[in-house]
Structures are given as structure tokens and as C-alpha cells.
Design a protein around this nucleic acid. Structure first.
Length: 363
DNA sequence: AATCCGTGGTT
DNA sequence: TAACCAAGGAT
């Protein structure tokens, strides 16, 4: 018999205070649940507070400009979440949220977990709420020989959770299971001595807690990139990542991703030229890559980028460029003053370059 | 169905 | 430093 009451009692004494637990309005729960996807609660707090202050309601969000709203998501990562939020906001503008998990699941960016969480927390629907935390707790309690991802998406897990849902306070129970995974039944160094489930936990009873859940390793690819800082009349050239699969609609300095280290400057210049504007002479771009500013590495989800940042000792001017009738800037390119760099949403790698430029008196 | 999508903190 | 991790979803 699963000790549901012990878990609920534990939760009532030990639950952490979060801003999204103050009120249970569907809008706030939705925003918090999306922000919490694959993101630790402590990191979400400041983002959530600023977001709710600026966009306190569904309608205020639906009326917002995408680029301004994206600034409030900058730094959280997995930006598809942001685009899903905006799509859903406009879809629901002037309407009310659906209350059934099945319908919530159809909203952009609202998957099985988030739909169940909203339905349970806000609308008190009796549904299984399964996230990574729950999967880990289950893997240990029942000694399931699978990875968290496999457990979470296995339909049998849903039936398992439904079978242990208590008759009363099932919404609190679901939240407690998540909280237990986050605070006690952690991946590393779980606090089994403080766990209300320990006495009947299969992994704990067999002293094999660290074995669960199973993990599958994956190799990380490497990518080498070169950024060209192009400055003209004290403005920096930026490119907006339109129609890209990652970092969609965010801004960056002209960057060329290549898969070999030590690509020739000529080849890099050519690659950058194609992004910036087709008609810039290669000779000119070569002049733009005369001085290496610094280099750094940045880890993305499935690859690690080794980035070199280059700049020029040659100062361009509008006058000089406009004399070339062949000069044409790409549609997604803008020259931006230093002070305005912070008004554009940047990914972490571009933001790192931005910090470098802002910290320096000049390039 | 396997793969991709970010980031900052921890080990 | 490299590897791993944290309240998933979409294709």
C-alpha cells in the first residue's frame, strides 16, 4: 500500500514557498509550469516575478510585442517555450482556459505533463501528473529498470500513478510527489533518512537507491564558430535569427559555424559575407577579421561550441560603404548602438560577446 | 521513435 | 575542464 497520507503530511510541513504557489490562477500556474520545464525552480523565480509584473494577465500578454516579451524570457533557455506561450496567449485572448487536461494538451507548448499539472492544481481534475521528479521517485520506490524519460512517457506509468492516487487530496498528493523528488528523492545524494516513503521503498530496502533511475549516456558533438564584430560609426551589426530551428527570433553578432578548427580566414570571411549581405567584397571582409578579441566555449543541449571572436582595426563608415552601389545589407541585419544592445534578446553565447563589448571602452 | 532544443550550477 | 544535471515538448 503506497503511503499517500504520509507523503501528504510531509508536504504540508515541508513544501517550499514559491511565488506561483501564492495564488492558483490558471494564468500564473500556466506561465510557471512552462518556465519550470527542464528548469530548476530557483532559477525560475526571478523570471516569473518580472514576467508577472509586466504581463499580469492573459490579455496584457496577448497585446504585447513579441520582441519585448522575449526580453523577459532571455536567459531561461529552450526558447520554443516562449513562442508557445505567445501562440497560446493569442489563441486564448478574450476566452478562458479549457479545464480538461485533454484540451489543455492541445495548446502550443502544453504537453502531457503541463496539461495534467494545470488540470490538477487549478481545476482539481483527477489526473496523473508525471514529470521527471515523479518518474525518479517511482523508479526507486518500485525499482523500475528504466530511465526517467522512458518511465515518464510509458503509458503504464500513468496507470500506476492513477492506482496510487488517494481518494481525497489527490491534487496535493501529485504536487507532493513532485516536491519530494525535487527536495528529498534527488538524483544525487537523496535524503532517504528524511523520506516519508522510505519504509516501503524497494530501492531503499535493497540498499540500491543510487542505481535508480537508470541513465543512458550520450556523446557531445563539437562545433567551432567564428564571430565577426562589425562596427560602423559606433554601431554594431546584428543579425536576427529568423526561420531558425533554435534561438528563434533572437539576435546575434555575425557568426559562422564550421565543423573544423582552423578554417582559413578567407573561407570564414566568405561565410560571414553570405549572412551579412551578399555584395560585400571579400577583400573588405578580410580587413574586418584582423584582430582576435577573445575566445570562449559554450555548451548547448546537443553540442559544444568553441567560439573565436574577431574584430577589425579598420573603421568602416556609412559614407565609405554607401559609395559602393553593390552594398546591400541582409533583411534581418541591423546596425545597433552600444546602449541599445541590451534591448535586443540574445542567447547566452551572443550575450557573452555583448558583455565583452559593453565592458570595453572601445573595440 | 530518436533527436533536438538552452542555460547555469554542481561534481 | 568535461560531464552531468534540472518541474518537457515538438517533430
Amino acid at each position: 500500500m503506497f503511503p499517500a497520507q504520509a507523503l501528504i503530511s510531509w508536504f504540508k510541513k515541508n513544501s517550499r514557498a514559491f511565488p506561483w504557489r501564492n495564488r492558483r490562477g490558471v494564468y500564473g500556474v500556466w506561465i510557471s509550469e512552462v518556465m519550470l520545464q527542464q528548469t530548476q525552480a530557483s532559477r525560475v523565480i526571478p523570471f516569473y516575478k518580472k514576467w508577472m509584473q509586466r504581463f499580469p494577465s492573459l490579455n496584457s500578454l496577448a497585446q504585447a510585442r513579441d520582441e519585448e516579451a522575449l526580453l523577459y524570457f532571455e536567459g531561461l533557455g529552450y526558447y520554443k517555450r516562449f513562442h508557445g506561450i505567445m501562440k497560446t496567449a493569442r489563441l486564448l485572448s478574450g476566452k478562458s482556459f479549457p479545464k480538461q487536461a485533454e484540451l489543455l494538451n492541445k495548446l502550443p507548448g502544453v504537453g502531457k505533463y503541463t496539461a495534467a499539472a494545470i488540470a490538477s492544481l487549478v481545476f482539481k481534475q483527477r489526473v496523473a501528473v508525471i514529470d521527471g521528479n515523479v518518474a525518479r521517485v517511482l523508479s526507486r520506490y518500485f525499482a523500475i529498470e528504466s530511465s526517467c524519460a522512458e518511465i515518464a512517457k510509458d503509458s503504464k506509468t500513468e496507470a500506476l500513478v492513477e492506482s496510487i492516487l488517494p481518494k481525497r487530496e489527490y491534487a496535493v498528493f501529485s504536487e507532493a510527489l513532485i516536491e519530494l523528488g525535487a527536495v528529498v528523492c534527488k538524483k544525487q545524494q537523496p535524503s532517504c533518512n528524511a523520506c516519508p516513503l522510505a519504509l516501503s521503498c524497494a530501492a531503499w530496502l535493497s540498499k540500491r537507491v543510487e542505481r535508480y533511475p537508470l541513465v543512458l549516456g550520450r556523446a557531445q558533438k563539437k562545433v567551432f564558430s567564428t564571430i565577426g564584430i562589425i562596427e560602423k560609426d559606433n554601431q554594431f551589426l546584428l543579425l536576427k535569427r529568423e526561420n531558425k530551428t533554435r534561438l528563434t527570433d533572437m539576435w546575434e553578432f555575425p557568426i559562422l559555424e564550421h565543423h573544423k578548427q582552423g578554417l582559413s580566414k578567407q573561407a570564414i570571411a566568405k561565410g560571414l559575407r553570405e549572412q551579412i549581405g551578399e555584395q560585400i567584397a571579400i577583400e573588405e571582409l578580410n580587413l574586418l577579421l584582423t584582430r582576435k578579441l577573445f575566445s570562449f566555449s559554450h555548451s548547448y543541449t546537443s553540442f559544444k561550441a568553441y567560439v573565436e571572436v574577431w574584430a577589425s582595426d579598420v573603421k568602416l563608415s556609412h559614407e565609405k560603404l554607401s559609395k559602393k552601389k553593390s552594398y546591400r545589407l541582409a533583411k534581418n541585419a541591423r546596425y545597433v548602438r552600444k546602449k541599445a544592445l541590451l534591448k535586443k534578446p540574445f542567447g547566452a553565447a551572443a550575450a557573452r560577446v555583448r558583455e565583452y563589448l559593453l565592458a570595453k571602452a572601445s573595440t
